[in-house]
Amino acid sequence: MSAEMSSPTTAVEAAAAAAADPASAEAVQVARDLTFVEPRVGVAKPDAVLVVDGVQRRFGGMTAVDVDHLEVQRGAITALIGPNGAGKTTLFNLLTGFDTPNQGSWTFDGRSLAGRSGAAVARAGMVRTFQLTKALSRLTVLQNMLLATPRHPGERLGLSWLPFLWRAREREATEKALEILARFKLDAKKDDFAGALSGGQRKLLEMARALMTDPTVIMLDEPMAGVNPALVQSLLGHVQALRDEGMTVVFVEHDMHAVRHISDWVVVMAEGRIVAEGPPGTVMQDQAVVDAYLGAHHDTDLGDDALLDPAVLARLEAEATGRQSAPETDHQEEQR
């Protein structure tokens, strides 16, 4: 079970690797910024774009998300990982205004976003994609892109029937859309219905569409899920390219492989809480993470004795209480 965790990549090595990569200087800068950040839950980042405080979401008796403090570094790729049912997508929904927390606050670029609608969050510059792609299948690829144009006068009912008022903006947006589509190699498909695209292409389209809004932070919910393995590499390349352009990327993933190569920082969630964070190499070495991660994983080999070892459990518990002053509550195994 530890085969994938075995290569001991330190943060410094990661930074060096990034430097060796012919990536932009900015990316290296980010990696360096994070190098000296202590891999500890709730740690402050040098330049946090998103700060989450005490966000809780309960469904009935079950606490789906309970995050004390989390900061997301500007201009970095932050991966949010954890087993199924860890609350990653729920946290995503909360932060992007698609769900309302029972309590908690969070700021984006210094402004509070708590209580804002999904649309308002997107307009503020934090744009998300969905786990199950939401390509608008009966619109063409180009229409999908144009739909994302921000502040389009033609989208106001009062002006919409007077085309001469918005034609210039439309032309401008079309140019930009074609440019982005070309980058994602979707330009040949611009007049196809989005429903006719393959799963991977839809993911790309969704990402491209999000770019149309000129976001500060782009939140990708499982961008690799359901994508043909051959496409995964190019998808990861696109994610990195976003960072290199200065965007902040946060993405949810439950597959650790994909995460370690591209992310600058990894946040691990389990049972609604953040159990660890740090550079990919460090985090994945963390025995607590491995245990917590796999302990709740639905496809864990339940025959693993380590999980039943009272000593391990005791240590886990001690670590949990040490990290978070609140006592550990009973979590129900109601996940499906």
Binding site: T96, G118, A120, A122, V127, K134, A210
Partner: peptide
């Protein structure tokens, strides 16, 4: 088609 997608684009 999908109002959540449109909402996520800031509309």
């Amino acid at each position: 088609e999908d109002e959540d997608a449109v909402r996520a684009l800031g509309k």
